[in-house]
Design a protein around this nucleic acid. Sequence first.
DNA 1: TATTGTTATACTCTATAACTATA
DNA 2: TATAGTTATAGAGTATAACAATA
Lengths: 162, 162
Amino acid sequence: MTRAVPVSVPVSHVNDETLSDFLGYHMKRAFNVIQSDLTETLRPFELRMLTFTALVLIVDNPGLSQSQLADAMDIERPNLVVIIDELEQRRLIVRDRVRTDRRMYALKATLAGRRLNKKALEATKAHEAKLLTGLDVQTTNNLMKVLSNLHHHLNNRHGGSD
Amino acid sequence: MTRAVPVSVPVSHVNDETLSDFLGYHMKRAFNVIQSDLTETLRPFELRMLTFTALVLIVDNPGLSQSQLADAMDIERPNLVVIIDELEQRRLIVRDRVRTDRRMYALKATLAGRRLNKKALEATKAHEAKLLTGLDVQTTNNLMKVLSNLHHHLNNRHGGSD
DNA sequence: TATTGTTATACTCTATAACTATA
DNA sequence: TATAGTTATAGAGTATAACAATA
C-alpha cells in the first residue's frame, strides 16, 4: 500500500493544467480518497457508503418510499432494491405496506437500525474530522456549501431541461 | 428520462440534514450529475471520462509512463492497461519503448490523438460552461480551488500515514 | 394509462494477486 | 530484490428494458 516514490523517468511532474478547468477531474480525485476512506470506516459496521446513506435517510425520514429514497440518493430504483433487501434482511429496517396506496412501501428503521445508525454516524464524523484536520475551517464550510449549491443547480438543470 | 414529479406520499421533502456534514454524500451527488453529463458530451467522440482523462494527460505530458499516468489518475495500474489498449488500438496514442529502461513505455499522442483531444476538449469546456451558467463566478473558482486543495490534502494524508 | 417495486442483464469502474521481463 | 507492465478475476456501482400489482 506504500505509494512508490518516482524514480528517474521521462516526466518528473505530471502537468494537469489542461484538466484544471474540469470539475469532474478534481471531484473524482477527491471523491476517490474520501470514499475509500469512508469504506474502511464503515467496514466494522458491515455497511458500505450506499447502505449507510440509505439507512441514515430512512432513520431521518420514517415512512418514505423506495422511489423517494432512490431519488434522494440519485440512483435508479432498480439499484436500490438490493440495498433495501440487505438492510431488511439484517433487520435494520422494515418494509411496511402503505394502506392508502398498496403499490408503495413505507420504509422504517428498527431499533437495531437506529442503534447501528448512531454508532456508524459517530465513527464517520470522527473519522472525517480527522481527515480534514489541518484544513482551515472556512475552506471546509465553503466546500460543503458550494457542493450542496452545485448539486441543486445541476439537478435542476438536469431534471428540467432534459 | 423525465424525472417524475412526486405525487402524494408519506414524506413530502426528504430531510438530509444528518448527512449534511458529510463530504462523501454531497460530492457523490454532484459528481453523479457531472459525470453522467460528461459521459453524454464525450459519447460522440467515443470517449469515456477515463479514456478522455488519459488522453488529455498524455497529450500534455508526452513520454510519461503508465505508472505515472495511473498515479495521476488515481487508479490502479492494472486498470489502466485496458484504457491504454483502447487508445492505442484507435491509433490515438503509441507505446514507445524507453531505451534506457526497457521495462517502461513512453506514452505519446499521435496526430489523430491530438486532434481528437482538441475537439473533445472544446466540446467539454463548452458543455461545462453551459452547465455552470447561473452560478456566480466566485463560487465556480472557489470550487475548483477547494477541490484541488482537498485532493492534495487528502492524498498526502492517505499516502503518508498508510 | 401511469406508477411502485421488481427481475434480469449488461456495462463500467475498482481492487487484488500473481505472472513476465527487465533492472 | 524491486519495478513496469500485464493477466485474470471478483466485486461494486450504474443504467435500461420489461414485468406484475396497484392506482
